[in-house]
Each structure stands twice: as structure tokens, then as C-alpha cells.
Amino acid sequence: MNEIKEITTAELQKKLEAGEKLELIDVRENEEVAEGMIPNAKHIRMGDIPDNLEAIDKEKEVIFICRSGGRSGNVCAYLQDQGYKVRNMVGGMLEWEGQTEAKK
């Protein structure tokens, strides 16, 4: 089993503040993202990932986000097996100290 690449919340925050264009997908449930998401992240619930593979760019590395890093880790393992370039945000939104925006 290939190890999944990780990124810390602090590393991600630095990249975003530096203006890097990153693919971010938040896999939490609707009521969780209602409390705030990282700006520009897409929201695809973990259970909806298999039906939304076409929404995930296979050419780019995609960073997955959840509350603590567990669910997003599972999503990363699933997608990595299918040839996607993935990275898991460890610590999840519990450790995120950067900006958030309410999900519309």
C-alpha cells in the first residue's frame, strides 16, 4: 500500500497566503461545512465521492479536508488506488487557523 502524502494545516495556510492555486475538496457533511470552509474549497461529501470522480482533476494534486483528517485520509486512499494525485490535510478543520467562509 502506497503511503499517502500529507500536508499540515500550517503548510496549507502558507501556500494559500502565497497565492498558490490549489485544488481543495472538503469531504465533510453539509451541516459541518455550513460552519465554514477554507475559501475556494469544493464541497463533495465523502459518500458522494465515488459518484463525482469526474469533478476531480486527475492531472492535478488534490488536497482533501475533513474535520480531523480521518475521513479525508480514507478518501485519499480510495482515490490514490485509482490513480489520482492526492494529499491529506492532517489535523483537519479542528486544527485549521486560517480563514474560513460560510458555505453558501
Rank of each mutant, 00 (worst) to 15 (best):
E23W: 07
T8N: 02
A10T: 13
G92Y: 09
C66W: 02
K104E: 14
E59K: 15
Y78I: 07
I44E: 04
V27N: 08
E3W: 04
Q13D: 14
E20W: 08
K58Q: 15
D26T: 07
V86F: 09
I44N: 04
S68K: 10
Q13H: 12
G36A: 09
G73E: 03
A41R: 08
K42G: 01
V86S: 06
K85M: 11
E11C: 01
I7T: 13
V86H: 09
E29G: 06
G91N: 10
M89P: 09
I4P: 02
E17A: 15
M89W: 10
Y84N: 08
M93N: 10
E54W: 02
N40P: 00
E59A: 15
K5S: 14
R87G: 07
I65N: 03
K21P: 01
E32P: 06
W96N: 05
A77Y: 12
Y84I: 06
G73P: 02
E32R: 09
V75I: 11
I65Y: 06
R71K: 12
D48Y: 14
V75K: 05
M93H: 10
M93Y: 11
G91E: 05
N88W: 08
Q99M: 13
I63N: 05
R71L: 04
N52T: 05
G83I: 07
G70Y: 02
E54L: 12
C66V: 07
N52I: 04
E3L: 13
I38W: 07
E29P: 03
G70C: 00
E97M: 12
I56G: 11
A41Q: 02
R67S: 09
E59N: 15
R87W: 00
N40T: 15
I44A: 06
A55N: 15
G47H: 05
G92L: 08
Q13V: 00
L53V: 11
D51I: 00
I49S: 08
K104H: 09
G70M: 09
E6W: 00
F64K: 07
T9V: 12
N52K: 14
I25L: 09
V33S: 07
R28D: 05
S72M: 01
W96F: 10
E97P: 00
E95M: 12
G73K: 09
V90Y: 04
H43Q: 12
G73S: 14
M46Y: 14
D51Q: 15
T8H: 03
L79Y: 08
A10V: 13
E95T: 15
